[in-house]
Structures are given as C-alpha cells and as structure tokens.
Nucleic acid binder design. Sequence first.
DNA 1: CTTAATATTAGGCATATGCCCTATTGAAAT
DNA 2: ATTTCAATAGGGCATATGCCTAATATTAAG
Lengths: 221, 221
Amino acid sequence: MKESTMKIRVAVAEDNKFLAESIKEKLELFSEDIEYKFRGANGKELLELLDKDHTVDTILMDIEMPEMDGIKAASIISNRYPQIKIIMLTVFDDEQRIFDAIQAGAMGYLLKDEPPQKILESIIMIMDGGAPMSPSIAAKSLQLLKNPARAEQKTEADFDLSKREIEVLEQISHGLDYKEISENLFISPSTVRKHIENIYKKLQVNNKMRAVKKAVKHKLI
Amino acid sequence: MKESTMKIRVAVAEDNKFLAESIKEKLELFSEDIEYKFRGANGKELLELLDKDHTVDTILMDIEMPEMDGIKAASIISNRYPQIKIIMLTVFDDEQRIFDAIQAGAMGYLLKDEPPQKILESIIMIMDGGAPMSPSIAAKSLQLLKNPARAEQKTEADFDLSKREIEVLEQISHGLDYKEISENLFISPSTVRKHIENIYKKLQVNNKMRAVKKAVKHKLI
DNA sequence: CTTAATATTAGGCATATGCCCTATTGAAAT
DNA sequence: ATTTCAATAGGGCATATGCCTAATATTAAG
C-alpha cells in the first residue's frame, strides 16, 4: 500500500484541547514515521478541514464530541474518503457504541489511555490492513460476533409481559404445543392456554407465529 | 481471578510434533509465569487428558488436527470446562473458521508464527479477560461484525423445496392461515394444505413454527 | 414420447388452536 | 383493609391444523 519511505499522515478529531495536544505530542515522538496534519475540535470541523485537504491516511477520532460526534463523522468520512482508515478513541468500552463505530466504518478501536508506543503500533497496524483494538474491546467484539442479536437497536416497545408469559412464549417459539408446554412448566394445559390468550392480547396478535415474530422483533425472547 | 503468585497452567493441542515442541519451548522461556501441563496430538487426545486432569487455565489449540479438529474440541471444552480459556492457533485467517471458532467458544485467535513474547502476552491478556488476536484476524472479525449476513450460512443442507413451497413457507412465516395464503397465491386452501404437508415431510417437522424455524436456520426463506 | 416431478384440488378425521366464559389463590400495591 | 393483578384451573365452541388417501393437470427431463 504505502512505501516505507513515506510518512503516515495522521489527522485527529478531539474536542478536549489538552487531550488533543497530548495526542499531538505523542505522535510527534515518532516524527520519522508520522506526519501530523491537523486536528478538528469536532466532527464538523474535521470534515471542513478534510474538504480542503484530504491527503490523510489515518484519523484518530474521539467518539464524544459536540456538534457532530465521532460515529457520525466516521460514517461520512468512510463514505466520502474510503481510503482513509479511522481509529476510534474512547474512554469506555461500551458495547453499543463499539458496534455503531464499526458500522460507521471505523477500522480500529482504542481506549484513550494507551501509551504512545501503542498508538504508533496501531497506526502502522491499520495501514497494514490490520485492525488495532484494545484487548477489552476485542473481547466485546467477540461477544457481539457470538451473539449478533444484541448487535442491533432495541426497538424498546414495552409490552409488559410477565415472567411466566415470557417463558411460555419461548416454548411456543420452539414449536411446542400446549400439552408439551404444560409438561415443561409443570402447569395445566388450561393455564398455558390462558397465558397464551393473555400474551396475544398484550402483543395484539392472534396466533403463535405472529406472537413469536413480534416477540423476536422487540427482543422479548 | 488469579493471584499473580500463581503460574498460568497451559495445555496445548497440536498434531505436528515439531510445532508442538516449539510451542512448548517458547512457553518454557517464561517458566516463572507459565506452567506447561501437557499436550494432546488432536482434539480427542486432549479431551482424554483433560478428563484425567482439568486443572488448566488456558489451552493453545490448533485448528487443523486429525481425529477431532480444534473447533469441535473447543466447542466441547467450553461447554464442559467453561472456566478454561481457549486460544486458537492457525496459519490462515479464514473468515468462516474464525467465526466457527468464536461460536465454539474460543476467546482468542492467533496466527501460528507469532513470536514467543507475543504468545505470553496473549496468555496473560486472556487470563485478564481480554481477547488476544492477531491484527489481521481482528480485521476479519470486524468485517464479520459489520456484515453478519455471511457469518452463518454454513448449514447448507439441501431440503430441495420447490419454488412454490418456498412461497407458501414465506406466507406461513408471516402468520397467515391456510385461507389467507390461498387467497394470496390464487390457489385453493386444499392446495395450500397439501404444500404444507409436503414441506413438513421435506423438512422433517410437524407444525408451522418448526417449519419456519428450520427454514430460517437453513436460510430457505 | 414417456416418465418423473411439481402443482393442483378434494374429502375425512382426530387433534390443536383461538377465543369466549367463570373462578380461586397468593402476592403486591394503595 | 381493599384493590389489583399474576398465576393457576377449567368448560365450551367454532375454526384451524396435521395427516391420511386419491385424483388430475402441468411441466421438466430423459
């Protein structure tokens, strides 16, 4: 991709002035390898800067910023300048945000307190086609990969199903009939039917398939 | 989790004798931190060894092995001994295998040619709750996370459903009854019922919910 | 052209389901 | 103390479903 004779051109998006300055200093420790281009105080400002000069290889992007946050900015940049690699910086390893950042096109995800050496490594790594991540973030990513269910928005409609109703719904979703469910839950078939009636009322549906569909959609089961 | 005074007990599963020996030597470089327990020449052998002695913290597991491969072994071990952390070792960064390994419960994924120092780091990292991965593997993981569609298709059993049967199945999955389906497809309810009978036979199920579950699982609809 | 697979329709029967009703118990809230 | 509600249980009825057999039409493959 990049000749070893060329410096890696890095831009930074970070609202905190001191932190931005600290990152700049860390980067300049490796002045032979890194060319520090500029810094935007938020996503919007960075975009304006890129508009004038997009000869940038990598962006270190804070997530939380005023005006336009890092996820939004990453999403725009990875569309507009797909060759630019984006490394998200954050203080938290929040699951949803990691996922959002990846969706937005971030190629790496570092916690802010990584030492200078690690940041350089990460930049080289990403230019090399790798994906730098802090170990705890890698672990979260694996969790998300293993269970993609949570990797989408929760539609958060509250149908107020009771615990028992959820249990019944799960059994329904496995294709069990009333008798089988009653045996599994140690209650009578009549009770199962009553629970299902109540579930239908709460979910506003009229058969098993629709109840399960709706439950899955709203992550009730 | 683990006191710093205690060594990390490591087992290895690797069929290649020389490579296994090389790994052992690398590990013994860090004899203060690592206690090398034993090595299985394949998944089956490792399981037998664990059966006798499962006081192991981490397993370095080769993927390709005769008798029982590393993914199968990881799946069994992570069920039977959930406290044991598994790091998969491989020469390729094959997307499907990475995903399978994660599903099987592997907590880390390293390329075989990592230097000794890196292996130690990875072991410590995993005992610390992190997830060690080679950068190129981290990148693949992100790809999978970004596009979970490809992350599951392997089951590919061919149930040989006809085009019409697929249409009926889709209608079933929306919760429609026979009459509604017949109206949507301009055929008689009898025909719908017959199609569904045939679907059940082909999918080896006996009600709508299970048919849809199976169809979804195997990406028939 | 002949055969095989698919699509279509239909009748019958036992069971499951959806939906209405009432009713008791225990726990939580007011 | 009274009310509310989840959980339990059951009866009854119309319809839906699962499963069997049988027959014809259409299409695809040989």
